[in-house]
């Protein structure tokens, strides 16, 4: 990404909006969707990294394998199940989406924008997984490093702060996050 800063400046803004902007889904739920989509695509890099961020937000480590095995039997809030089924289908067989897939999300009690937000996370990671695979980037599974990076992503989010003014709310958030990390280590 460092090779093309003019592109990724915009991409980070899209990522921050999708993953941390206003949404009926918590940031942790969105990271869970991100890790799940990446697992379906067998992208070890994004799957490992974003599952760890979901864990940093409080989901148990055992959840992701059981979701990938069988959504219906996984120990997760029933409301998330139609959402995960929707993104599973949109990732693996995108042309087969039907209105019924979206209706199942509404029936579970989500408002309309939830469909858009789930689609957006799914799209973002179908992009990211292919960016990683297309460049042959490999995942470093060192658990300490994964946890450290996940904690950083939890606190700092997705924005590329180099392009923002000093008083921008994201820059302040990043600065607060950095201080929190350095004081805890």
């Amino acid at each position: 990404m460092a090779q093309r800063p003019e592109i990724y400046r915009h991409w980070h803004q899209v990522g921050e909006g999708i993953m941390r902007g206003d949404s009926p889904f918590t940031p942790g739920e969105r990271e869970l969707i991100a890790g799940y989509v990446s697992g379906l695509n067998a992208c070890a890099y994004c799957h490992g990294a974003h599952t760890a961020v979901a864990v940093a937000f409080g989901f148990p480590e055992s959840l992701m394998p059981s979701l990938l095995d069988n959504i219906d039997e996984a120990p997760i809030d029933e409301r998330m199940k139609p959402v995960l089924k929707f993104v599973r289908k949109l990732t693996l067989t995108p042309a087969q989406m039907t209105k019924a897939d979206a209706e199942a999300i509404f029936t579970a009690g989500w408002e309309e924008i939830a469909v858009h937000d789930a689609v957006a996370v799914c799209c973002y990671f179908n992009f990211m997984n292919r960016l990683v695979f297309g460049h042959g980037i490999e995942f470093d599974p060192d658990p300490d490093k994964v946890r450290m990076l996940a904690e950083r992503k939890k606190q700092l989010g997705y924005a590329n702060r180099d392009d923002l003014p000093e008083d921008h709310p994201l820059v302040r958030k990043v600065r607060a996050g950095k201080e929190a990390i350095s004081s805890s280590s």
Binding site: R4, I7, F86, L90, T91, P94, A95, M97, T98, K99, A102, V115, H116, A118, V119, A120, C122, C123, Y124, N126, F127, M128, R130, L131, G134, H135
Partner: peptide, 18 residues
């Protein structure tokens, strides 16, 4: 690769909204 990634995004954006 960026074109390919972008259209894997856009295809799912339009199909996901029906």
């Amino acid at each position: 690769i960026l074109v390919i990634c972008r259209f894997n995004f856009m295809n799912r954006l339009t199909l996901g909204h029906g």
